[in-house]
Every structure is written in C-alpha cells, then in structure tokens.
Nucleic acid binder design. Structure first.
Lengths: 142, 142
DNA sequence: TGCTAACCTTTCGAAATCGAACGTTCGGGT
DNA sequence: ACCCGAACGTTCGATTTCGAAAGGTTAGCA
C-alpha cells in the first residue's frame, strides 16, 4: 500500500511547514521547540540530555550544542544530578515555561486548522489506526 | 486533537528509522533515496534541481551538493535543457535505475511489514482520512 | 533593439548535525 | 578492595545543510 505511506509523508511534510511558519515568529527552531515541548510534557520531572536527544531524534552530541544555545538564551537550565553524577538534569526556566504556555495557544489553533476537514468520529478513527500501526512497529523493533 | 498529531509524528519517526536501516545497506542517505525515487516516479521526464529540492524538502543550494555527489557516483546525470538554458535536467543513469528497481523490492517488504496490523479495509480508510487532511491543508495554503 | 524584472543554478560563509573518541562515574563480579 | 564493562555528557573533526549573494538566461515591454 504505497498509497498510505505517500499520504503519511504528505501530511507530515505539510505539517512541518505549518510549524516552521509558526515557530519563525518565536525565533525558535523546530528542534528547539521539541526540547521545550518535551520538558513541558515531563512537567516537574527533569530530563537528561540523552533522553532529550532520543525524544527529539537527534544525536547526543547535537543536543549538547542545542542546549548550550538554549541555556545561553535562558530557556532551560542544566544542573548536576545528585544521585548519579554522570547525569545532567535539564529543566525549563520561568522564561521557558512562559514561552511554552504562550505559544501553546497558537499551536492549538494550528491543529484545529489541520484537522478541520475531519469530524470528531473521523479524528478518533484516524488516531486509532495510526496508534495501531505504531504498536505493530514497536513489536517489530523489539 | 493533540492525539492525532502525536500519533502521526510517531509513525513517521518509526518509519524513518525503518528506511534508514534499509538504506544503510545500499550506502544511501534518505535524501539521496528521495532523489532517486522522485526521478523514477517521473519516469521518462527529467526533473530540474529546483524541482528535486522542492520534492525532497531541501534548499536548492543543498541539492546542488547532493547532486554533485550522486553524479560522481554515477547514479544520476546532469545535462543542459535545450529549450531553456537556465535550466538543468537531471535524469537517472542505468546504474541509478538498477539501484532503484533492485531496492524497490526491499521497500515493498518494508511497507507490508509496517502495515501488517491493518487489514485491507482499514488501510483504505487510513489512506482516505490522510488524503482528506492533505486536501484541507492544500486549501489553506492557497 | 535595449532594458528591466524574474527565474534558475551555483558559490560562499555560517550554522547544525553526525560519528568517534575521551574522561568521568556507576554497578557488578572476583 | 579492586577491576572491568557500561552509561553519560562532552569535545573534536568532517559532513551536510541553510540563507544570501552572484552569474547567467529568459520573457515582457517600451
């Protein structure tokens, strides 16, 4: 079913363009936004650079540089883990949180625009099918 | 519906890993494969570097370098367009075609693996929903 | 014809990314 | 107590990518 894969990449390509446009206003890279969003989702728990690299599909060495920039900009903070001194914990600063909460509204608008063509039932069905595919892929990986 | 977007990116992320693994055997980048596939899909018609850049979501200047490497490797060929001399036409060489046809079988295997969890009807439904979303996004762009 | 605006490709410097190697630290085994 | 393998973050050099500017070509228009 080449058709499914083509459609999949078509949607994500469009979606990337959407996000790139929105993020340009915030002077943020998609990768940097992925870091902010990951940390926000983690909530109180901090994440390590390795975890962030894994979550955002990037090499650990790239994450080092990315975090350097974001620390310098005051969005995130690094601090050593008291329990395991090989680890470093990364967390959102107050500015980072503010940037997240202020831009999440825009993001909501985007998502509703993206899915405007589908009613609630169709959205649920789409999510279900995609999650089914993910589950299969997870099994194959393991 | 954050759930849909999350699932979407989840699938494409897994899918990218899949393709990266398969392509590693051919010593090909995903970007290079995208060029080969685009040219193959175009068939007899040649494509310009700009078109390839657009199709593969990359800057034109990046495509120049990418094509340099692929020409040197003998996968594609550049030749001037007789009708419009600002244009350059890119086409697959015999080696490029061979690489495409030989690897397309692997690709088919991958895709059937990816969608193993869905029956024919579900696949059709998934494709339909995704294409609906694309149509909406196209409208918004225009 | 001559001129201008637009387009296509390439070149160039800057930035991001990657893979490999390194130093440090943790945990298990002897 | 000691050593060794594994994990973690970082540094380094090489590769890839991007944005801006340059060079060359076409099409429209006076």
């Amino acid at each position: 079913m080449q058709r499914v894969i083509t459609a999949l990449y078509g949607v994500t390509k469009k979606l990337d363009q959407w996000y790139a446009r929105q993020l340009a206003d915030l002077d943020l890279t998609q990768g940097e936004w992925a870091v902010v969003a990951s940390l926000a989702r983690a909530g109180e728990d901090c994440l390590t650079p390795s975890q962030l690299a894994e979550l955002t599909s990037v090499a650990p060495s790239s994450m080092t540089h990315r975090l350097d920039k974001m620390v310098q900009r005051g969005l995130v903070a690094r601090r050593p883990d008291a329990d395991n001194r090989t680890r470093t914990l990364v967390s959102l600063t107050a500015d980072g949180w503010e940037l997240f909460t202020s831009s999440i509204r825009e993001s909501d608008v985007v998502e509703s625009d993206v899915l405007r063509g589908l009613d609630a039932e169709e959205r649920g069905e789409l999510a279900r099918l995609l999650e089914e595919v993910i589950a299969q892929l997870d099994d194959v990986d393991a």
